[in-house]
Computed example of a mutant assay.
Amino acid sequence: MSIAATADSGAISDLPAAASGSMQPAMRILALSVSYLGFVYLANAYLVFWLDWPGVVALLGDAGLLGFAAPKEPLGGRVALAILQIAFYPVTVAAIVVYVLRTRARTLHMDAKRLSAIGAFVARAAFWTVLLVGLADAVVSFLRVEGLLPDVVGKGLAQDLGKSSFRAQVLHLPLMAAAIAISLFTRSVGFTWLALLVVVAELQIVILRFLYSYEQAFMADLVRFWYAALFLFASAYTLLHEGHVRVDVLYSGFGPRRRAWVNAVGAAILGAPVCWIVMTMGLANKFSVVSGPLLSFEVTQAGFGLYVKYMLAGYLLVFAVTMLLEFMASLLSNAGVLLEEADAPQSKGESDAHY
């Protein structure tokens, strides 16, 4: 037997049964904690930036811990809210530990499928959001630029729809809610349709520009709006099916077990930290690259363009969340291969039943 074959065959399964058995729940706790704590972090960011809760950083600064600057005003009675926000993290981990210990019969592959399903739901909701919001905002922008909006909705409402905050709350948010409802009843993500819509949106620009000499800012905005969504929302799907370009000279020659090692370590050491960096840096404060545009409902400088630039910043959160879930699903699936679980996937994309 060659050295490569020996290295490929000897792995976690060669450990004592007790050690191998303890790794399965440990891997589940790790992957589920890393995934669900991401949602806790996003929930805390919402509480801080939109509901004006003090937050973890303010509490640490108020107590003079870890070098954080003290808040401009003492927290006073709001300390309880900050403590509650901190408590969300250990409570979440504790709940995961209890869940794992009570469901020892669940395999790593089962949890991987669940994480992929959650990521697919997020991607579906995001897809329907950009579809509905893009079409609706394009119609409003067209009516505005042609001076027809007051005739359709009235002068007062037409003026209000020219304000980004009003349009976002009155038009975009209800459509987002509708998109979430639709995603509950659909079982696939329309990446193919979104790609087609990008082509159609670009084609109508070409036709109208060269045949009718007509072009408006919202038309190009719509192409960018949908193309950015296609690129970022489909990343997790591409990762699941190993569609990303691999720049390597070794991986293709590895056996199944060595590939599982590479994928598991890469997901845990390289993939998940990047997703957490995107979330933490994007929501570090009210002026960060994600929270700033979302809080101000930022729009482009073109007066009659789409009022959706703030949503492009939100795309980064969708990307980070879906990729984090898929990285942890990959970690669990490949750990299942190393532990030789009976239902471990044997080919790429086999674990997918939701995208």
Rank of each mutant, 00 (worst) to 15 (best):
Q204K: 12
L171A: 08
G255C: 14
H172N: 13
M323R: 05
A342D: 15
A126N: 01
Y46S: 12
L250E: 10
A4G: 01
V145E: 11
A217Y: 08
G292R: 05
V48T: 04
K163V: 09
V170S: 10
W226Q: 09
P293V: 03
L37Q: 07
S164Q: 11
L135F: 11
L295Q: 10
G190R: 03
Q85Y: 04
M110Q: 15
V91H: 03
A19D: 03
V56N: 00
T92W: 02
D52L: 12
Y214V: 05
S22K: 11
L325Y: 06
K72Y: 00
F121V: 02
V265R: 04
A353D: 13
V199E: 06
G266H: 05
P256S: 14
L230P: 05
A268D: 02
Y46C: 08
Q159F: 02
A342S: 14
A138G: 06
I86F: 09
I180K: 01
Y89C: 00
V122C: 07
G154H: 09
L317I: 15
A344H: 06
V289I: 13
F39V: 10
N334L: 03
V48D: 01
Y310C: 07
A178W: 07
V289T: 12
I182C: 01
L81I: 12
L339P: 02
F218E: 03
A69L: 05
A18M: 04
L42M: 14
L338Q: 06
L324E: 11
Y212L: 07
V170N: 10
P74T: 10
A264D: 07
L332M: 15
A179P: 09
F254H: 11
G336R: 02
F319C: 01
R167P: 00
A181S: 10
E341G: 10
I207M: 14
W226Y: 13
A5G: 11
D52S: 14
L283S: 01
Y36V: 04
S347L: 12
L81Q: 14
F233R: 03
A181M: 11
G154A: 08
A267V: 11
G255D: 14
A220F: 07
L171Q: 06
L196V: 14
